[in-house]
Simulated assay, not measured.
Amino acid sequence: MFGDYSIGDLGSIFVMQGFAGLILFSVYVLMALGLAIIFGQMGVINMAHGEFMILGAYVTWMTSNFFQSYLPSLFSGYFFLAMILAFVASGALGMLVEWVLIRHLYKRPLDTLLATWGLSLMLQQAYRSVFGAREVGVELPQWMLGSLHVTDSIEVPINGVFVMCLTVLITLGVAYVMYKSRWGRQVRAVVQNRIMAGAVGINTEKVDRYTYGLGCGIAGIAGSAFTMIGSTGPTSGQLYIVDTFLVVVFGGAASLLGTIASAFSISQTQSTLEFFMSGSMAKVLTLLAVVGILMLRPQGLFALKVRK
Rank of each mutant, 00 (worst) to 15 (best):
F275S: 06
C165K: 11
A133C: 03
P234G: 11
G160M: 05
T232R: 10
I241G: 04
L119T: 07
A115G: 15
M228F: 08
F52S: 02
T269I: 15
I266S: 08
I170Y: 00
Y70L: 12
I102C: 04
A32K: 14
I154N: 00
G300A: 01
V29H: 08
L140N: 05
N193Y: 01
G21M: 04
V163K: 03
E51C: 04
S147T: 15
S255I: 14
L121C: 02
L30D: 13
L110A: 14
L246C: 09
S262Q: 10
F302Q: 06
Y28D: 02
M95E: 09
V177H: 00
A175E: 13
D243C: 07
T63I: 03
G300H: 08
V191L: 11
G258C: 09
Y210T: 03
G50R: 00
E135N: 11
G34T: 00
R128Q: 12
I195R: 13
A82C: 11
V29A: 02
P72C: 06
L113N: 12
S73G: 15
F264I: 15
V150H: 11
P141I: 12
L256M: 06
A225G: 09
L10S: 01
G201I: 02
G237I: 03
V174E: 05
T232Y: 10
L301Y: 13
A189V: 08
Y212H: 09
S265C: 15
E98P: 11
F162T: 06
D9N: 09
M295K: 10
V177A: 06
C216Y: 10
V97T: 08
V174R: 09
S236A: 13
L140I: 14
R209M: 13
M295P: 10
G198V: 03
F162D: 02
W143L: 06
W183E: 11
Q192S: 12
G77M: 04
V177S: 05
M122N: 04
N159E: 13
V177K: 04
I38M: 10
G258H: 10
Y5I: 03
V190Y: 05
N65E: 11
L148E: 14
S120W: 07
I13K: 07
K283T: 15
T235W: 12
I37Y: 05
L24M: 12
Q124L: 06
V138E: 11
P234L: 04
Q192K: 08
M16R: 13
L110F: 15
A20P: 02
V156D: 01
G43I: 02
V187M: 15
N203H: 09
Q192Y: 01
S267D: 12
R182I: 12
G252Q: 00
N159V: 10
V248E: 04
A289S: 15
L169D: 05
R209E: 02
P298S: 05
F79M: 15
G21T: 06
G50V: 01
V168P: 10
G77A: 12
M53S: 04
G94W: 09
V306L: 14
P157K: 01
F2G: 00
D243M: 08
Q68E: 15
S76P: 07
V138Q: 11
V306R: 15
S6H: 13
G220E: 00
G137Q: 01
G21R: 04
A189N: 08
G258V: 08
A199K: 09
L145P: 00
L304H: 04
L24H: 07
